[in-house]
Design a protein around this nucleic acid. Structure first.
Lengths: 172, 172
DNA sequence: AGAATCTAGTTGCACACGCAACATAATTGG
DNA sequence: CCAATTATGTTGCGTGTGCAACTAGATTCT
Protein backbone atom coordinates (compact mmCIF):
# COMPACT_ATOMS: atom_id res chain seq x y z
CA UNK A 1 0.00 0.00 0.00
CA UNK A 2 1.18 3.46 -0.83
CA UNK A 3 4.39 2.43 -2.51
CA UNK A 4 4.24 4.18 -5.83
CA UNK A 5 5.51 7.62 -6.55
CA UNK A 6 3.90 10.31 -8.66
CA UNK A 7 0.66 11.91 -7.62
CA UNK A 8 1.30 11.17 -3.99
CA UNK A 9 4.70 12.62 -4.27
CA UNK A 10 3.22 15.85 -5.57
CA UNK A 11 1.60 16.44 -2.25
CA UNK A 12 4.85 15.98 -0.43
CA UNK A 13 6.31 18.52 -2.79
CA UNK A 14 3.45 20.92 -2.20
CA UNK A 15 3.88 20.69 1.53
CA UNK A 16 7.60 21.15 1.09
CA UNK A 17 6.91 24.18 -1.04
CA UNK A 18 4.67 25.54 1.67
CA UNK A 19 7.45 25.21 4.23
CA UNK A 20 10.06 26.60 1.89
CA UNK A 21 8.16 29.64 0.77
CA UNK A 22 7.05 30.42 4.27
CA UNK A 23 10.57 30.13 5.62
CA UNK A 24 11.92 32.09 2.68
CA UNK A 25 9.49 34.94 3.07
CA UNK A 26 10.24 34.98 6.73
CA UNK A 27 13.98 35.02 6.27
CA UNK A 28 13.66 38.07 4.04
CA UNK A 29 11.06 39.95 6.05
CA UNK A 30 12.18 39.32 9.59
CA UNK A 31 15.52 41.18 9.48
CA UNK A 32 13.86 44.12 7.79
CA UNK A 33 11.12 44.16 10.37
CA UNK A 34 13.73 44.11 13.09
CA UNK A 35 15.62 47.04 11.61
CA UNK A 36 12.49 49.04 10.88
CA UNK A 37 10.63 48.51 14.11
CA UNK A 38 12.70 46.46 16.49
CA UNK A 39 10.17 43.66 16.38
CA UNK A 40 10.56 39.98 15.76
CA UNK A 41 8.13 38.19 13.52
CA UNK A 42 6.39 36.59 16.45
CA UNK A 43 6.09 39.84 18.34
CA UNK A 44 4.69 41.53 15.29
CA UNK A 45 2.25 38.69 14.87
CA UNK A 46 1.03 39.08 18.41
CA UNK A 47 0.71 42.83 18.09
CA UNK A 48 -1.21 42.57 14.83
CA UNK A 49 -3.83 40.37 16.46
CA UNK A 50 -4.18 42.84 19.28
CA UNK A 51 -4.45 45.84 16.98
CA UNK A 52 -7.27 44.16 15.14
CA UNK A 53 -9.19 43.15 18.23
CA UNK A 54 -11.88 45.27 19.87
CA UNK A 55 -10.41 47.14 22.81
CA UNK A 56 -6.95 46.07 21.67
CA UNK A 57 -7.32 43.12 24.00
CA UNK A 58 -7.38 39.37 23.71
CA UNK A 59 -7.26 36.45 26.05
CA UNK A 60 -3.96 34.65 26.20
CA UNK A 61 -5.50 31.44 25.02
CA UNK A 62 -7.16 33.15 22.10
CA UNK A 63 -3.88 34.78 21.19
CA UNK A 64 -2.08 31.46 21.40
CA UNK A 65 -4.49 29.74 19.06
CA UNK A 66 -4.40 32.61 16.57
CA UNK A 67 -0.66 32.94 16.40
CA UNK A 68 1.86 30.33 15.44
CA UNK A 69 2.94 29.99 19.05
CA UNK A 70 2.15 27.43 21.70
CA UNK A 71 0.75 28.69 25.02
CA UNK A 72 4.20 28.38 26.49
CA UNK A 73 5.82 30.35 23.71
CA UNK A 74 3.12 32.96 23.91
CA UNK A 75 3.71 33.49 27.62
CA UNK A 76 7.36 34.26 26.98
CA UNK A 77 6.55 36.42 24.00
CA UNK A 78 4.08 38.49 26.00
CA UNK A 79 6.65 38.67 28.80
CA UNK A 80 9.09 40.33 26.45
CA UNK A 81 6.43 42.61 25.03
CA UNK A 82 5.46 43.60 28.52
CA UNK A 83 9.05 44.40 29.41
CA UNK A 84 9.22 46.60 26.35
CA UNK A 85 6.08 48.37 27.49
CA UNK A 86 4.01 47.56 24.44
CA UNK A 87 1.61 45.14 26.05
CA UNK A 88 0.15 44.86 29.51
CA UNK A 89 -1.47 41.92 31.22
CA UNK A 90 -4.85 42.50 32.77
CA UNK A 91 -6.82 40.19 34.99
CA UNK A 92 -10.06 38.78 33.68
CA UNK A 93 -12.90 39.62 36.03
CA UNK A 94 -15.09 36.65 35.13
CA UNK A 95 -12.38 34.03 35.13
CA UNK A 96 -9.80 34.69 37.74
CA UNK A 97 -7.24 32.35 36.26
CA UNK A 98 -7.48 33.96 32.84
CA UNK A 99 -5.53 36.96 31.62
CA UNK A 100 -5.95 39.52 28.90
CA UNK A 101 -3.11 40.89 26.88
CA UNK A 102 -3.84 44.49 26.01
CA UNK A 103 -1.97 46.85 23.77
CA UNK A 104 -0.60 49.89 25.59
CA UNK A 105 -0.53 53.37 24.08
CA UNK A 106 3.10 52.76 23.25
CA UNK A 107 2.25 49.48 21.61
CA UNK A 108 -0.34 51.21 19.49
CA UNK A 109 2.14 53.89 18.51
CA UNK A 110 4.76 51.33 17.59
CA UNK A 111 2.30 49.48 15.43
CA UNK A 112 1.08 52.64 13.78
CA UNK A 113 4.62 53.22 12.59
CA UNK A 114 5.52 49.62 11.95
CA UNK A 115 2.57 48.62 9.83
CA UNK A 116 3.14 50.92 6.83
CA UNK A 117 6.83 50.09 6.82
CA UNK A 118 6.12 46.42 6.90
CA UNK A 119 3.50 46.71 4.19
CA UNK A 120 6.02 48.48 2.02
CA UNK A 121 8.56 45.72 2.62
CA UNK A 122 6.03 43.11 1.64
CA UNK A 123 5.17 45.08 -1.47
CA UNK A 124 8.84 45.24 -2.38
CA UNK A 125 9.10 41.52 -1.94
CA UNK A 126 5.92 40.42 -3.66
CA UNK A 127 5.40 42.90 -6.45
CA UNK A 128 5.42 41.32 -9.83
CA UNK A 129 5.43 37.78 -8.52
CA UNK A 130 1.73 37.10 -8.48
CA UNK A 131 -1.15 38.87 -10.14
CA UNK A 132 -3.76 40.35 -7.83
CA UNK A 133 -6.19 37.56 -8.69
CA UNK A 134 -3.53 34.99 -8.00
CA UNK A 135 -2.84 36.54 -4.65
CA UNK A 136 -6.49 36.36 -3.83
CA UNK A 137 -6.67 32.74 -4.88
CA UNK A 138 -3.60 31.93 -2.86
CA UNK A 139 -5.04 33.60 0.20
CA UNK A 140 -8.29 31.70 -0.11
CA UNK A 141 -6.53 28.36 -0.43
CA UNK A 142 -4.27 29.02 2.49
CA UNK A 143 -7.29 30.07 4.48
CA UNK A 144 -8.95 26.77 3.71
CA UNK A 145 -5.93 24.87 4.90
CA UNK A 146 -5.63 26.91 8.04
CA UNK A 147 -9.30 26.60 8.87
CA UNK A 148 -9.22 22.89 8.30
CA UNK A 149 -6.30 22.51 10.65
CA UNK A 150 -7.90 24.70 13.27
CA UNK A 151 -10.90 22.44 13.05
CA UNK A 152 -8.85 19.47 14.15
CA UNK A 153 -8.00 18.82 17.77
CA UNK A 154 -5.82 21.84 18.34
CA UNK A 155 -5.34 21.44 22.04
CA UNK A 156 -5.29 17.89 23.29
CA UNK A 157 -4.55 15.37 20.59
CA UNK A 158 -6.75 12.35 20.95
CA UNK A 159 -6.81 10.06 17.92
CA UNK A 160 -3.30 8.74 17.89
CA UNK A 161 -3.74 5.00 17.97
CA UNK A 162 -4.11 3.93 14.39
CA UNK A 163 -0.55 2.95 13.70
CA UNK A 164 0.64 2.28 17.21
CA UNK A 165 4.36 1.83 17.42
CA UNK A 166 7.37 3.24 15.61
CA UNK A 167 7.48 1.32 12.36
CA UNK A 168 10.82 2.29 10.99
CA UNK A 169 14.03 0.54 12.00
CA UNK A 170 15.46 1.55 15.33
CA UNK A 171 16.32 5.17 14.95
CA UNK A 172 17.32 6.11 18.47
CA UNK B 1 3.12 55.75 -0.72
CA UNK B 2 1.77 52.66 0.96
CA UNK B 3 -0.09 54.41 3.69
CA UNK B 4 -3.72 53.37 3.26
CA UNK B 5 -5.29 50.23 4.50
CA UNK B 6 -7.37 47.79 2.52
CA UNK B 7 -5.68 46.29 -0.49
CA UNK B 8 -2.30 46.67 1.13
CA UNK B 9 -3.59 45.07 4.24
CA UNK B 10 -4.65 42.06 2.24
CA UNK B 11 -1.09 41.29 1.51
CA UNK B 12 -0.18 41.37 5.15
CA UNK B 13 -3.01 38.95 5.71
CA UNK B 14 -1.84 36.72 2.90
CA UNK B 15 1.65 36.59 4.32
CA UNK B 16 0.19 35.91 7.74
CA UNK B 17 -1.86 33.14 6.24
CA UNK B 18 1.25 31.70 4.69
CA UNK B 19 2.97 31.61 8.06
CA UNK B 20 -0.08 30.27 9.82
CA UNK B 21 -0.84 27.47 7.44
CA UNK B 22 2.78 26.46 7.23
CA UNK B 23 3.14 26.38 10.99
CA UNK B 24 -0.18 24.60 11.35
CA UNK B 25 0.67 21.90 8.86
CA UNK B 26 3.97 21.49 10.55
CA UNK B 27 2.51 21.25 14.02
CA UNK B 28 0.26 18.45 12.85
CA UNK B 29 2.76 16.57 10.73
CA UNK B 30 5.90 16.81 12.81
CA UNK B 31 4.76 14.75 15.81
CA UNK B 32 3.38 12.08 13.50
CA UNK B 33 6.60 12.00 11.57
CA UNK B 34 8.51 11.64 14.80
CA UNK B 35 6.37 8.73 15.98
CA UNK B 36 6.37 7.01 12.60
CA UNK B 37 10.02 7.37 11.74
CA UNK B 38 11.87 9.05 14.53
CA UNK B 39 12.66 12.00 12.32
CA UNK B 40 12.22 15.68 12.84
CA UNK B 41 10.85 17.84 10.07
CA UNK B 42 14.26 19.26 9.34
CA UNK B 43 15.91 15.87 9.25
CA UNK B 44 13.27 14.57 6.93
CA UNK B 45 13.72 17.59 4.74
CA UNK B 46 17.44 16.94 4.48
CA UNK B 47 16.94 13.27 3.76
CA UNK B 48 14.35 13.96 1.07
CA UNK B 49 16.80 16.15 -0.82
CA UNK B 50 19.41 13.45 -0.62
CA UNK B 51 17.05 10.71 -1.76
CA UNK B 52 16.17 12.74 -4.79
CA UNK B 53 19.72 13.55 -5.71
CA UNK B 54 21.89 11.47 -8.07
CA UNK B 55 24.16 9.23 -6.03
CA UNK B 56 22.19 10.18 -2.91
CA UNK B 57 24.75 12.90 -2.40
CA UNK B 58 24.77 16.66 -2.22
CA UNK B 59 27.21 19.33 -1.24
CA UNK B 60 26.60 20.88 2.13
CA UNK B 61 26.12 24.30 0.62
CA UNK B 62 23.62 22.98 -1.89
CA UNK B 63 21.75 21.25 0.87
CA UNK B 64 21.71 24.40 2.92
CA UNK B 65 20.26 26.48 0.13
CA UNK B 66 17.63 23.89 -0.67
CA UNK B 67 16.41 23.37 2.85
CA UNK B 68 15.00 25.89 5.23
CA UNK B 69 18.21 25.79 7.24
CA UNK B 70 21.16 28.13 7.44
CA UNK B 71 24.63 26.65 6.85
CA UNK B 72 25.13 26.57 10.57
CA UNK B 73 21.89 24.78 11.23
CA UNK B 74 22.62 22.35 8.45
CA UNK B 75 25.97 21.42 9.94
CA UNK B 76 24.30 20.50 13.23
CA UNK B 77 21.50 18.71 11.48
CA UNK B 78 23.92 16.60 9.46
CA UNK B 79 25.91 15.99 12.64
CA UNK B 80 22.87 14.41 14.22
CA UNK B 81 22.03 12.45 11.11
CA UNK B 82 25.57 11.21 11.03
CA UNK B 83 25.39 10.09 14.64
CA UNK B 84 22.24 8.18 13.79
CA UNK B 85 24.10 6.53 10.94
CA UNK B 86 21.79 7.74 8.21
CA UNK B 87 24.15 10.13 6.54
CA UNK B 88 27.89 10.19 6.09
CA UNK B 89 30.19 13.04 5.24
CA UNK B 90 32.55 12.54 2.37
CA UNK B 91 35.38 14.75 1.25
CA UNK B 92 35.10 16.48 -2.08
CA UNK B 93 38.08 15.59 -4.27
CA UNK B 94 38.02 18.75 -6.36
CA UNK B 95 37.48 21.18 -3.55
CA UNK B 96 39.25 20.16 -0.43
CA UNK B 97 37.32 22.47 1.83
CA UNK B 98 33.97 21.17 0.57
CA UNK B 99 32.05 18.19 1.85
CA UNK B 100 29.37 15.92 0.53
CA UNK B 101 26.55 14.59 2.61
CA UNK B 102 25.64 11.14 1.35
CA UNK B 103 22.82 8.88 2.37
CA UNK B 104 23.98 5.60 3.89
CA UNK B 105 22.23 2.30 3.26
CA UNK B 106 20.50 2.74 6.57
CA UNK B 107 19.41 6.22 5.60
CA UNK B 108 17.96 4.86 2.40
CA UNK B 109 16.13 2.14 4.29
CA UNK B 110 14.74 4.61 6.77
CA UNK B 111 13.48 6.81 3.99
CA UNK B 112 11.99 3.89 2.11
CA UNK B 113 9.83 3.21 5.13
CA UNK B 114 9.24 6.80 6.16
CA UNK B 115 8.08 8.16 2.84
CA UNK B 116 4.90 6.11 2.39
CA UNK B 117 3.93 6.70 5.99
CA UNK B 118 4.45 10.39 5.64
CA UNK B 119 2.56 10.52 2.39
CA UNK B 120 -0.34 8.77 4.09
CA UNK B 121 -0.28 11.29 6.90
CA UNK B 122 -0.33 14.14 4.45
CA UNK B 123 -3.21 12.53 2.64
CA UNK B 124 -5.11 12.21 5.88
CA UNK B 125 -4.49 15.85 6.58
CA UNK B 126 -5.19 17.31 3.18
CA UNK B 127 -7.90 15.11 1.72
CA UNK B 128 -11.06 16.99 1.00
CA UNK B 129 -9.57 20.38 1.66
CA UNK B 130 -8.49 21.33 -1.82
CA UNK B 131 -9.43 19.90 -5.18
CA UNK B 132 -6.59 18.41 -7.22
CA UNK B 133 -6.59 21.43 -9.52
CA UNK B 134 -6.47 23.73 -6.56
CA UNK B 135 -3.54 21.85 -5.16
CA UNK B 136 -1.75 22.19 -8.43
CA UNK B 137 -2.48 25.89 -8.54
CA UNK B 138 -1.31 26.32 -5.00
CA UNK B 139 1.91 24.49 -5.72
CA UNK B 140 2.62 26.60 -8.76
CA UNK B 141 2.06 29.84 -6.86
CA UNK B 142 4.22 28.78 -3.98
CA UNK B 143 6.88 27.77 -6.43
CA UNK B 144 6.79 31.22 -7.96
CA UNK B 145 7.24 32.80 -4.58
CA UNK B 146 10.04 30.47 -3.62
CA UNK B 147 11.86 30.95 -6.90
CA UNK B 148 11.55 34.68 -6.65
CA UNK B 149 13.04 34.65 -3.19
CA UNK B 150 15.82 32.34 -4.25
CA UNK B 151 16.59 34.83 -6.99
CA UNK B 152 17.31 37.54 -4.45
CA UNK B 153 20.60 37.78 -2.62
CA UNK B 154 20.39 34.53 -0.67
CA UNK B 155 23.83 34.55 0.82
CA UNK B 156 25.28 37.96 1.52
CA UNK B 157 22.65 40.65 1.69
CA UNK B 158 23.82 43.76 -0.09
CA UNK B 159 21.07 46.30 -0.75
CA UNK B 160 20.14 47.39 2.72
CA UNK B 161 20.54 51.12 2.67
CA UNK B 162 17.25 52.57 1.48
CA UNK B 163 15.70 53.38 4.82
CA UNK B 164 18.79 53.59 6.94
CA UNK B 165 18.04 53.85 10.63
CA UNK B 166 15.40 52.44 12.95
CA UNK B 167 12.37 54.65 12.40
CA UNK B 168 10.10 53.58 15.18
CA UNK B 169 10.33 54.98 18.69
CA UNK B 170 13.15 53.60 20.79
CA UNK B 171 12.29 49.97 21.19
CA UNK B 172 15.40 48.65 22.87
C1' DA C 1 -21.47 20.77 49.64
C1' DG C 2 -17.22 18.14 48.57
C1' DA C 3 -14.33 15.37 45.58
C1' DA C 4 -12.88 14.53 40.96
C1' DT C 5 -12.08 16.48 36.58
C1' DC C 6 -10.93 19.92 33.46
C1' DT C 7 -9.12 24.41 31.82
C1' DA C 8 -5.89 28.79 31.79
C1' DG C 9 -1.65 30.10 32.20
C1' DT C 10 3.18 29.79 33.87
C1' DT C 11 7.83 27.65 34.66
C1' DG C 12 12.08 24.01 34.56
C1' DC C 13 14.47 21.92 31.35
C1' DA C 14 16.66 20.55 27.31
C1' DC C 15 17.36 21.30 22.64
C1' DA C 16 17.71 23.42 18.09
C1' DC C 17 18.48 27.55 15.72
C1' DG C 18 20.88 31.76 13.88
C1' DC C 19 24.59 35.09 14.11
C1' DA C 20 29.22 36.26 14.21
C1' DA C 21 33.85 34.77 14.45
C1' DC C 22 36.89 31.33 12.95
C1' DA C 23 39.87 27.86 10.23
C1' DT C 24 40.95 26.28 5.88
C1' DA C 25 41.29 26.19 1.01
C1' DA C 26 40.48 28.20 -3.57
C1' DT C 27 40.90 32.29 -6.52
C1' DT C 28 42.38 36.60 -8.04
C1' DG C 29 45.95 40.35 -8.57
C1' DG C 30 50.29 42.43 -8.51
C1' DC D 1 55.04 33.34 -7.17
C1' DC D 2 53.39 35.26 -3.11
C1' DA D 3 49.82 38.52 -1.02
C1' DA D 4 44.86 39.87 -0.76
C1' DT D 5 40.27 38.41 -1.40
C1' DT D 6 36.53 35.27 -1.59
C1' DA D 7 34.16 30.87 -0.67
C1' DT D 8 33.10 26.50 2.25
C1' DG D 9 32.12 24.64 6.32
C1' DT D 10 32.40 24.47 11.45
C1' DT D 11 32.13 26.22 16.34
C1' DG D 12 31.06 29.57 20.70
C1' DC D 13 27.53 31.93 22.38
C1' DG D 14 23.09 33.76 23.33
C1' DT D 15 18.25 33.26 22.64
C1' DG D 16 13.70 31.44 21.59
C1' DT D 17 10.90 27.32 21.52
C1' DG D 18 8.17 23.30 22.81
C1' DC D 19 7.17 19.58 26.07
C1' DA D 20 5.97 18.10 30.46
C1' DA D 21 5.06 19.22 35.04
C1' DC D 22 2.95 22.48 37.93
C1' DT D 23 -0.29 26.08 40.32
C1' DA D 24 -4.62 27.98 40.65
C1' DG D 25 -9.22 28.61 39.50
C1' DA D 26 -13.62 26.80 37.26
C1' DT D 27 -16.86 22.95 36.38
C1' DT D 28 -19.18 18.66 36.89
C1' DC D 29 -20.96 14.70 39.26
C1' DT D 30 -22.81 12.27 43.04
Amino acid sequence: MAGEQGRDDERVTTVGLLFESSAGVRRVLEPQLLVDSGLSNHSFDVLVRLVRSPGFRLRMSELASQTTLTPSGLTRSVDRLEESGMVAREACPEDRRGAFAVLTAKGQAVMAEAMPLHVARIDDLLDGVLTPEEEETLASMLRKIRDHIRGLGLSTACEESESGAPLVSGVS
